[in-house]
Design a protein around this nucleic acid. Structure first.
Lengths: 332, 332
DNA sequence: CTGTTAGCGCCTTCAA
DNA sequence: TTGAAGGCGCTAACAG
């Protein structure tokens, strides 16, 4: 910075003012300083400026996994919003419970990030209380916390709509393959099931819920159980696309045609869902990330503005895994 | 830090020494300082210490996309190695050519990261020369650069092995669906094709190469072309799992049984490959990330150590999409 | 509109 | 083994 000042023949303060777009500099001076900084390819040290302002120019994202398409896509949306605001993205992956615990003890973002965004971490009250000690705004995604800034998907509406779609097609024996509500019950798990249940009950049908492990193994087992029932379902709604994909595998092995004999709907709009023509509920993870980023920026601008809840909609993507049941085929 | 010093009754220097594990502090003093820091839940400010040491405690990863499972998994491996070393992970996604250009002009990691790792960015010489201006060690993955630290997958060996597997099963009409070598030719694209070609030629067979766009659409089109040939192939090797999945879709629609009529092999071990029982070449992205992290750490410890090349192996994952061709069925 | 001054929180000499 | 002093690069008050 000194070099830039010397080269332009102005003081350090003036250079500083120009470089952070502060008002009160003559236009021609401003320009000359810019030029000099450019020539010397000088950039301000965030370290040094942060020391004074208390800002780091960084936002931290905390998430449980990085492999699944969902998290990468949320990060993309988040990263775009942040980079537009000139902020960098710090990523912390907390895979194991131990990593989670260590992190909550040390809180690495302390004095190291201006805001923290959690991605489907399903934090307990105790946990996010601990996170408050970081001393920066917190934004939750995939989780609803009263009085805190949150972005969450309208899971209930998603399964509600998907179930109604199946009902409208003429199905009545519609089963649901979900996961156990372990970990004290992930919110999305509960919400998705409740949307399905509600649609079934409001239409006078009996919910049929099978709970297995997460992932495609769970789907395989769940579908196995359903296929061995006395009167198998004609349509199946899965809690996630992964489960649906597992279910699809079982169906193929059993030689049951989809959608002719069984209609199948997933949830997530997983990459593979498009390839397999799976009807699914899209939750726009990109948008979730972007909204979370915006909430963080808002909290940085207006520290009092915390507590906004953004509920992102879902959308049913009709593909070729759903159709009217055989029995009503002739009618339509 | 002042508070900790006061509470312990020592000077700032002593506290500093304890907190960065510097020698020359009496054991009992050390312990008391530690205890005080803990009680006050004090952590050193990276900003301030970095101002003096020039270290930021951060490593930057630069990548083109975040959605695909591959990148997320590489980041996981990288993040684990870094967090063990007490370093934070900064992520820059450069999706569009414009973003890439802006980034290369501003170089945000300058004075903001201790090392930069590129993930399958396929940088031109001009581009990575520009990156040198960041002034920190660079590590490349998914790309081979002479004289620079690189981690790359042995793509050639991967397709070579996969093709031999098909040959060993008795196939002879083996086609390859790849992508055009756009962007001046991604290295992996070239290498994968060459492994296939080599295996075909060494065994006295004629390579049969179809070039389409990337993604599952390309696979669909490629397989369409192959199925409409006078004498269709009995086995197909795809450049990526995505392409293979698209190809699989075409096969299913055409009613061609896999692997009975056509064997199919992908490359990447994509999430969906397991679900669909696709034989594929696994490239262990987790390990790639970890190796890249280690190279970065090494470069930080020993600035002269740059230029190491790590070649990670691939592994053929046999699943149910490959089998002997029909004609030789009776023989086995 | 511009320059001067005093730190931000820490590390690194040096001297004791 | 410990403490005191100076400065890392920048910003935020002030005074001009």
């Amino acid at each position: 910075m000194r070099d830039v000042a010397r080269r332009t023949g102005v003081s350090l303060s003036t250079v500083s003012r120009v470089l952070r777009d502060a008002p009160g500099v003559a236009p021609h001076v401003r320009e000359r300083v810019r030029a000099a900084a450019d020539e010397l390819s000088y950039v301000v040290s965030r370290n040094a400026s942060g020391l004074v302002t208390g800002r780091t120019g960084r936002v931290a994202a905390v998430l449980p996994r990085l492999g699944p398409w969902y998290f990468g896509t949320v990060l993309s949306g988040l990263g775009d919003v942040l980079s537009e605001a000139g902020l960098d993205l710090l990523v912390y992956r907390l895979g194991s419970p131990e990593a989670r615990d260590t992190w909550l003890r040390d809180l690495p973002p302390r004095r190291n990030a201006d805001a923290v965004i959690t991605l489907s971490m399903d934090l307990t009250e105790d946990e996010y209380r601990r996170m408050d000690r970081i001393g920066v705004p917190l934004v939750f995604t995939g989780q609803r916390v009263p009085g805190r800034s949150c972005v969450h998907v309208d899971n209930r509406a998603g399964t509600l709509g998907a179930t109604r779609h199946l009902l409208n097609l003429g199905h009545s024996r519609i089963a649901y393959i979900g996961t156990h509500g372990e970990h004290g019950g992930k919110e999305s798990v509960v919400e998705r099931l409740s949307g399905y249940t509600e649609a079934m009950i409001e239409s006078g049908h009996t919910p049929w819920h099978v709970a297995k492990s997460a992932g495609h193994r769970g789907g395989e087992h769940g579908m196995g159980e359903l296929l061995s029932a006395a009167d198998p379902p004609t349509a199946v709604l899965a809690e996630t696309d992964e489960i649906a994909l597992g279910a699809l595998r079982s169906l193929r092995r059993a030689g049951v045609p989809v959608p002719e004999a069984v209609s199948l709907v997933g949830f997530d709009n997983h990459e593979a869902a498009a390839v397999l023509d799976l009807t699914t509920v899209d939750q726009e993870p990109r948008r979730i990330g972007a909204e979370a980023g915006r909430l963080a920026l808002e909290a940085l601008r207006e520290p009092a503005s915390t507590g906004t809840h953004v509920c992102t909609p879902t959308q049913l993507l009709l593909r070729r895994s759903t159709a009217a049941p055989r029995s009503t085929r002739g009618l339509s």
